[in-house]
């Protein structure tokens, strides 16, 4: 991304074309990766509430997986996931490549 000069940017540090966070793919930060085990999911959506990057994919009110473009691997969803009968539906594993 080339940097702009002061004549080319909105003043006061305003961001007028929100939401620019979509341009910033925080998935590249990941060193740990959450894996979804659908069989243990009770669809409580705790993971969706807690995820700081809105990286939990929900369809028809059901947890469907993780958007790895933005998931930065913080592990909060894994920590919060109650799962089924003591088996979590989210597991944190080391990022491979």
């Amino acid at each position: 991304m080339s940097l702009k000069g002061y004549k080319e940017i909105p003043d006061a540090g305003l961001i007028l074309n929100a939401p620019t966070s979509i341009q910033n793919k925080t998935g590249s930060w990941r060193s740990m990766k959450p894996i979804f085990h659908e069989e243990n999911c009770i669809n409580c959506l705790f993971c969706w509430w807690y995820c700081p990057d809105s990286a939990i994919i929900i369809e028809d009110g059901k947890m469907k997986g993780i958007n790895y473009d933005y998931c930065k691997g913080c592990g909060i969803c894994v920590h919060e996931c109650p799962g089924k009968k003591g088996n979590k539906a989210l597991e944190l594993v080391p990022e491979k490549e």
Binding site: L3, Y6, I9, G13, L14
Partner: peptide, 25 residues
């Protein structure tokens, strides 16, 4: 209808440019 962000973090890449605007204006 026109969402904007006011007062975001602005480090060594753009802070000086925003100060330059104040200096010039």
């Amino acid at each position: 209808d026109n969402p904007i962000t006011v007062g975001p973090l602005d480090l060594f890449d753009y802070y000086f440019e925003h100060k330059a605007q104040q200096i010039v204006d």
